[in-house]
């Protein structure tokens, strides 16, 4: 049985997992830095890098303990190569390379978004290619066709803020905590989408744009405060969530129809949003909509291990000169 140790450190979670054949998850450890970054209202790259360096040894150690395995029992070490914060990525990449050299194991470089798009296999190993993937997180918003394992065709992506970034910024303006996604979802549940915020449709493109929405919400709040008019934070949260979810769901549905794909996979931290999940399913009642449990939506190493299984099967290994890449393109990444 193939067993892969996977390490993920692209943003603010230090994570390690052990994944075996058939997407069996033997261990999944995540050390989150959210409390550290909450002091600053968002992820501070230098602080994130420092935290990764302190956490990487205990996190990997715990993953192997949970799996009941030693390095000698493994078949490969996989690591997120990019995209992400360069300082954070470098900690995981340097550590993974050292483990691979010292333990004599092959090294596998995984694209962070290929990881997100592979996450559903952990709970739905029956999932088959091709499928449409909507990847939405704090730093990415994209639509891609997963043609086969490791082959992704990018249809469109955000031209400015990522969807999760929009949630974070709007949450901050509303006085809600970081990360903004869960906070807005929670507030929205107590409110009504009574305000109409603008949606950027960008014609027929599959690209996204969320910076206009963010500005519109900020302007709205400014005006209300200047005029001394009352408003409910819950209603603003519900309206902003609606504006984001509406565009994401509509473009995913349109792409699935246009390319004749029967399955839509939602991935990334924003895929944990309940409104997004139900909206997509509503728009394409005859298609299969697959989304991971919240723990596999936000950054984790299990998804990196899932993506690495395919690369292992193909013998697609990286050298010890592997470098982290902050902007790693997906389309060319096979």
């Amino acid at each position: 049985m193939v067993k892969i140790l996977a390490i993920e450190s692209s943003c603010d979670e230090t994570a390690a997992a052990v994944v075996a054949d058939g997407y069996q998850l033997l261990a999944n450890v995540i050390a989150t830095q959210i409390p550290v970054h909450q002091l600053y209202g968002g992820v501070v790259p230098e602080i994130a890098s420092r935290e990764h360096l302190n956490s990487v040894v205990p996190v990997v150690e715990r993953a192997l303990q949970e799996a009941g395995l030693g390095l000698a029992d493994l078949d490969a070490v996989a690591v997120t190569q990019g995209p992400g914060l360069i300082g954070s990525l470098l900690v995981g990449v340097s550590y993974a390379k050292a483990l691979a050299l010292a333990a004599g194991l092959p090294l596998i470089a995984v694209h962070h978004l290929a990881g997100h798009m592979s996450a559903p296999f952990l709970e739905h190993p029956d999932l088959t290619f091709p499928y449409l993937a909507l990847v939405v997180s704090g730093s990415h918003s994209g639509l891609a066709i997963a043609e086969q394992a490791g082959h992704y065709r990018l249809l469109g992506q955000s031209r400015d803020d990522a969807a999760g970034e929009a949630f974070d910024k709007i949450a901050r303006a509303l006085g809600l905590p970081y990360p903004g996604g869960p906070a807005i979802q929670q507030a929205a549940a107590q409110g009504q989408p009574i305000y109409e915020f603008p949606c950027a449709w960008l014609d027929d493109s599959y690209d996204f744009s969320f910076s206009g929405l963010k500005s519109a919400v900020l302007n709205f709040l400014n005006k209300k405060q200047m005029k001394g008019e009352p408003y409910r934070v819950e209603d603003v949260a519900a309206s902003a969530q609606e504006a984001i979810v509406k565009v994401l769901a509509a473009k995913a549905a349109r792409a699935a129809e246009h390319f004749g794909l029967d399955t839509i996979v939602l991935a990334g931290g924003v895929a944990a949003n309940q409104a997004l999940r139900s909206r997509v399913q509503q728009m394409v009642p005859d298609k299969r909509v697959v989304y991971p449990s919240p723990v596999f939506c936000t950054d984790n190493a299990a998804m990196i291990g899932a993506a690495a299984l395919n690369k292992y099967a193909q013998g697609d290994f990286a050298g010890l000169d592997l470098n982290a890449q902050a902007n790693l393109p997906l389309y060319f990444y096979n």
């Binding site: 990997v60 300082g87 470098l90 340097s94 550590y95 050292a98 483990l99 050299l101």
Partner: peptide, 14 residues
């Protein structure tokens, strides 16, 4: 971080 992460990885594995 490159140096320390690499040294940690080698030392931990060995």
């Amino acid at each position: 971080r490159i140096g320390v992460a690499t040294a940690k990885g080698l030392a931990w594995a060995l």
